[in-house]
Amino acid sequence: MLAAPPWEDPDLFAQQIVSGIASGSLFAILALAIVMIYRSTDVLNFGQGEMALFAAFMSWTFLTRMDFWPAFFLAILVAAVMGAALERFVLRPVSEAPVLNSIVVTLGLFVVFNGLSLWIWGSQPKGYGPFSVFKGDATCVSDVCIGRLNIGILVVTLIIMVLLYLLFQHTRLGLALRATAQNRTASRLVGIPVGNMLSIGWGLAAAVGAVAGVMATQNLSLTTGTMFAVLLFAFAAAVLGGLDSPVGAVVGGLSIGVIKNLAGTYVPPEVGSVDLLVAFLVIVLVLMVRPTGLFGRRAVRRV
């Protein structure tokens, strides 16, 4: 059955926009993590989604010992330490090597983290169920509703963005991180410990990714296959916004969320499910028309 067009059922349309923004903010956070790493180390981290998944599983395990929020923060902390260690011991040795090598290494991370999750936690879906703090009635304005979980996701996303903004724009560490991302030689010459900055950058990105992982698996289910699609949407978001633009990642993420929801509602069901296809088309279209994305600056072409 075809959904009523927006002019006949504006509430349905508004509802899809609201839900789209909520799920889009998940893509935005993961895309943010990808962009942070790409900016600072020129590495495209295909392992980001699976690292996030691993963190989500960890938080689920911690739940047997503690409440939600302590488990949440502990998982993020562990993820950050792991991210920093990965940069130091796995990525840095290939930092002078071709792009291909670093991509191959992050694909290795993808496989390893996915495999580890499967081995440790099995293939049975896990749920936060009773532990989740995002329970309760949806909030409605006329017929447009937003659930507790979606409110939670939006608030967490907002908090992350504000924190990152403050860190990068208003602290000495943030300034050093931005400097390192731009010009490593110059950073060394002014006395910035570049290696530490790269590790911190990866740790930070892993932590941000972990938040995306925990929130995403609250929404979807917690299985080893959950993050494949989320990673695809995050890549679509990053490409749409520009691979080197944090603002772009956020705008791209929200847009992809909304586009995906609208397509899910208004594409006739006879066609089949098209959510992944939408992300694929966005990626292909952007790369054909404007490979730097909406906010990106760096040249995409190989020179």
Partner: peptide, 27 residues
């Protein structure tokens, strides 16, 4: 031919993730 490594990687990644859905399209 117009894309550098990372972008090419993303494009081909999206292809393999999406292809099963394309193959299942009702059309």
């Amino acid at each position: 031919a117009r894309l550098s490594g990372p972008y090419l990687a993303i494009a081909t990644f999206s292809l393999i993730i999406t292809l099963p859905q394309i193959l299942k399209l009702n059309g």
